Simulated scan of single mutants.
Amino acid sequence: MLQFLQHLKVVLLSIPFSIIISVPIGFFISGKPKLAKIIIYICSILMTIPSLALFGIMVVVLAPVKLGIGITPAILAIMMYSLLPIIRNTYAALNSVSPRMIEAAKGIGLTGQQILFRIKLPLSIPVIMAGVRNAIVLGVSVATYASLVGAGGLGYFIFSGIGRANFLMVLSGALVVSALGIGINMLLMKVEEWLTPRGLKITPVSEERIE
């Protein structure tokens, strides 16, 4: 139970920081395609770094300030890994709004800021939330490496089980990590449904039987 709570703690501390950084960046680059290409490319490079290597890099970078071991390198590594899906989805969502709708909003006198928060943002919520869900599920799996840098978590059971050739220990750790990822994803789907404007929700149409 302690390792489960520690795993959850690492994820819940890292992902909010990633959202706070990623969503504003997505908004900022939404009207700057050249800058967006550079930012997304840099984030893509970060994603190509193997998870374990990124944790190791964080340990080395933070070692001079005596933060190389513990929860700090784990949080930073997961946060960096989570940037791409949120930034990319935010950018794509904001730029997928119909130009005709934006022109109509300008026609009724809305300012650029009003268009962003009253038109673009509500229409973009489903896609942005999809990016957040991907980032969190990714963070849950990557957080298994947190135990290797002294941050604890469910990775303890997986790596300890491998070291002891204990299949049940590895399996239990993997199953709990999977269940945690699925559970958080389902919870966020409910949050996404709650945040999505009613007009964008797809509701089943009842068919009437013609006799």
Results as ranks from 00 to 15, higher is better:
2 L>I: 12
4 F>W: 10
4 F>C: 10
6 Q>F: 11
8 L>I: 14
10 V>K: 07
11 V>Y: 02
13 L>S: 05
14 S>E: 01
14 S>P: 06
15 I>K: 03
18 S>L: 03
20 I>C: 05
21 I>H: 01
24 P>W: 01
24 P>D: 05
25 I>C: 00
28 F>Y: 14
29 I>H: 04
29 I>C: 02
30 S>N: 00
30 S>A: 04
30 S>W: 01
31 G>Y: 13
35 L>Y: 08
37 K>T: 15
38 I>F: 10
39 I>H: 04
40 I>G: 04
42 I>P: 09
43 C>L: 06
44 S>G: 15
45 I>L: 15
47 M>Y: 15
48 T>E: 13
49 I>T: 08
52 L>F: 09
54 L>Q: 12
54 L>W: 11
57 I>Y: 11
61 V>Y: 11
70 G>A: 02
71 I>Y: 03
72 T>C: 12
72 T>N: 11
72 T>M: 11
72 T>Q: 13
74 A>I: 14
74 A>Q: 05
75 I>L: 05
81 Y>R: 03
81 Y>K: 01
83 L>N: 01
85 P>Y: 07
85 P>A: 06
86 I>D: 00
86 I>E: 00
91 Y>P: 00
91 Y>H: 07
91 Y>F: 06
93 A>L: 02
97 V>S: 04
100 R>V: 10
100 R>P: 00
101 M>G: 03
103 E>H: 06
105 A>F: 02
106 K>H: 08
107 G>K: 10
108 I>V: 09
108 I>M: 10
109 G>C: 10
113 Q>A: 14
114 Q>S: 10
114 Q>M: 15
115 I>P: 02
117 F>K: 14
118 R>L: 14
118 R>E: 10
125 I>G: 05
128 I>C: 04
129 M>T: 00
130 A>M: 09
130 A>Y: 08
138 L>W: 08
138 L>D: 07
140 V>L: 04
142 V>T: 03
148 L>A: 12
150 G>W: 08
151 A>S: 09
152 G>W: 08
153 G>K: 10
154 L>S: 14
155 G>C: 03
157 F>I: 07
158 I>A: 05
158 I>F: 04
161 G>T: 09
165 A>V: 10
165 A>P: 00
166 N>R: 12
168 L>W: 13
168 L>D: 14
169 M>H: 09
170 V>S: 00
170 V>G: 03
176 V>P: 14
177 V>T: 06
178 S>Q: 12
178 S>Y: 12
178 S>D: 13
178 S>W: 13
181 G>S: 00
182 I>V: 09
183 G>Q: 04
184 I>C: 01
184 I>M: 02
187 L>H: 04
187 L>K: 02
187 L>F: 04
189 M>K: 13
191 V>T: 07
192 E>T: 11
194 W>E: 07
197 P>Q: 09
200 L>S: 06
200 L>G: 07
203 T>H: 15
204 P>F: 14
204 P>I: 13
206 S>P: 11
206 S>M: 11
206 S>A: 12
207 E>L: 15
208 E>M: 15
208 E>R: 14
209 R>P: 12
211 E>H: 15
